[in-house]
Design a protein around this nucleic acid. Structure first.
Lengths: 146, 146
DNA sequence: GACAAGATGCAATATAGTTGCATGAGCAAA
DNA sequence: TTTGCTCATGCAACTATATTGCATCTTGTC
């Protein structure tokens, strides 16, 4: 997904050490074209480099806090992680298939959002607006259809 | 929150028995002005009517499936449940305070969403568009501020 | 009342994420 | 190079959330 992001730079720019584990996790997410759960990430990373489950959770938490990753949520299930919006990635909505559980990135132009009204009147601080489209993906529709 | 919805009618219209437990759960959610977690609902209901935890989960799942309730999700935490959009309730976005975990309903006009483009081009079936605003609520801002 | 279908309860289990504490790696001053 | 510090990681135990299987109870219908 991301041939533009230099993970080492991303990490050091946020004041984090660019450790092997962090790079592996970022590469795993970046090489995938859709967000992954912590368990997915652990399984993929652990195939080649042994890494502790807890370390995965801790790195994910840290990178979300530093806004290098974004956490996406969906019905009562595990959170998904993808690269956070940055100069190479516009913020974009996600599609979640309620049949197969697949999460996909949608084009940033596919949905138009205007939160100006809210931003003007809201008495708290707004950090982000997350848009998730739920439905049934093409593949599942095909399998069910006939 | 909802003095307009007749829960018994809502249930039977979906082909469900209007059991005491289901009514209690719907009343609990409807009387609250913001979405609640399954644990919240269990605690509230169980104070007056003894009800099994599992029953709460099962009823919530069922009512979400029948689109009487909607399930809202947030970072790695328990799901929240609110009344689903219907003739008395326009679909609306939600605000989630990352400090205190409070979830609130926003006015349906506060954010303008246009998904026409997606709906035209998307190859699957779109069931709903969920919008969640994350940030820090007024109260938490005040406490932190000074 | 007897029956069937569906609802509920209970115990056990599964899944996701967190915590506390010990160890290890990397860096920097002496 | 050694010492000491800081931060990263590992491991085991734990918590929170949700689900399953099976037994029992309720409700509506005849």
């Amino acid at each position: 997904m991301c041939i533009h992001c230099d993970y080492t730079t991303l990490l050091t720019a946020s004041g984090l050490e660019a450790t092997v584990n962090r790079i592996h996790i970022l590469e795993t997410i970046g090489n995938n074209n859709c967000p992954l759960t912590a368990v997915d990430i652990f399984n993929i990373v652990d195939r080649t480099q042994s890494m502790n489950r807890v370390t995965v959770y801790r790195i994910l938490d840290l990178l979300v806090e530093k806004k290098i990753l974004e956490r996406l949520n969906v019905g009562s299930k595990a959170a998904y992680y993808g690269l956070a919006p940055n100069e190479n990635h516009a913020p974009h909505p996600h599609f979640y298939c309620t049949e197969c559980g697949q999460m996909d990135c949608l084009n940033s132009e596919s949905i138009n959002i205007n939160a100006d009204r809210l931003k003007k009147s809201f008495p708290g601080e707004i950090q982000k607006v997350e848009v998730r489209v739920d439905g049934i993906c093409k593949n599942c529709l095909k399998q069910h259809g006939n």
